[in-house]
Nucleic acid binder design. Structure first.
Lengths: 158, 158
DNA sequence: TTAACACTTCAAGTATACTTGAAGACAAGT
DNA sequence: ACTTGTCTTCAAGTATACTTGAAGTGTTAA
């Protein structure tokens, strides 16, 4: 089975080696073996665990919650309800997060367009934009990074 | 103009009064006046500022970045490029966040279905699910909270 | 008048998630 | 043998964002 040093794993996950030791100490990265001279050896299983850690952390889970989850997993049969509950709660939490992020993104886009237009009015002269006109506008951000305006038929150049 | 006490504002935004004082001290909630007996008076402008703070914080901005932004806003003409740059960076950051959140959500859904099926197999008996079968499945979460499965019979190594 | 209550300041404390530093072990290269 | 480099442990330090506690002021209600 493939083996990895702490440096290699840290490299793969874009984190310092200290974080890997920290996760181990916190009990969320378990069963790390050591070679003859005491150095850590990681295997595929650890990489999978780390992927799960990164995923869950990305959804706002704390180390304590991760620990609870992995502890439940160790005694799956007995804690199956705890596991399902935890994941269900997480699902709802992430959905709420996504909704709020979308709202916040819309706000950022409005602000961005407002200030872009202000910049234009400073450079080119012309009427200074009024925030009131932007408050209710909807900007749709496409895959290509282009931004289109809805709600007011103002066509942007650029 | 409508006025609000610290308690009312805290209530509106679902935060303790201490946070409002903290934001003021950090210089991101500015121009808060006091009444005759030294108590804070908030107006509509402060509520708008707080809405912006909550939005930007929701996108992962730190207090320091918020401070920078509002400082730039005070001298808009001179810092218009800084403002636009900051907002553009924020736009990209949030888009990346949304992408990752979606991936993490998919992972949570897969895990949730895996363990739900395990629970079922424990209760009802039957074949114990294998994580390998879930790793590449796509679960689509509908508005109603129902989750539908796609690619249930997909071939691996596609 | 006295108690309750809501506010004030300011300093210190807390929670989370790491990060850093000191001191030492071990393997390879010169 | 010595130096370099990478690892080890363990304790202490850091960053961010608040939160809490002590001590005091001012307004209202009995």
């Amino acid at each position: 089975m493939a083996q990895y040093t702490i440096r290699q794993v840290a490299e793969m996950f874009g984190m310092p080696t200290s974080t890997l030791r920290y996760y181990e100490e916190e009990g969320i990265l378990t069963n790390v073996t050591k070679n003859g001279s005491g150095q850590r050896i990681y295997t595929e299983g650890h990489l999978n665990r780390l992927r799960t850690i990164c995923c869950f952390k990305g959804t706002g889970m704390t180390i304590a919650q991760l620990k609870a989850f992995f502890t439940y997993e160790e005694d799956e049969e007995h804690h199956i309800d705890d596991i399902v509950n935890l994941l269900q709660e997480r699902r709802m939490y992430v959905r709420k997060q996504m909704e709020e992020l979308e709202k916040d993104y819309a706000h950022v886009l409005r602000k961005l367009h407002y200030y872009s237009d202000i910049r234009e009015s400073i450079r080119e002269g012309g009427t200074r934009p009024d925030w009131c006109d932007y408050r209710k506008r909807i900007y749709t951000d496409q895959e290509d990074g282009q931004v289109y305006v809805e709600g007011k038929n103002i066509k942007k150049n650029e």
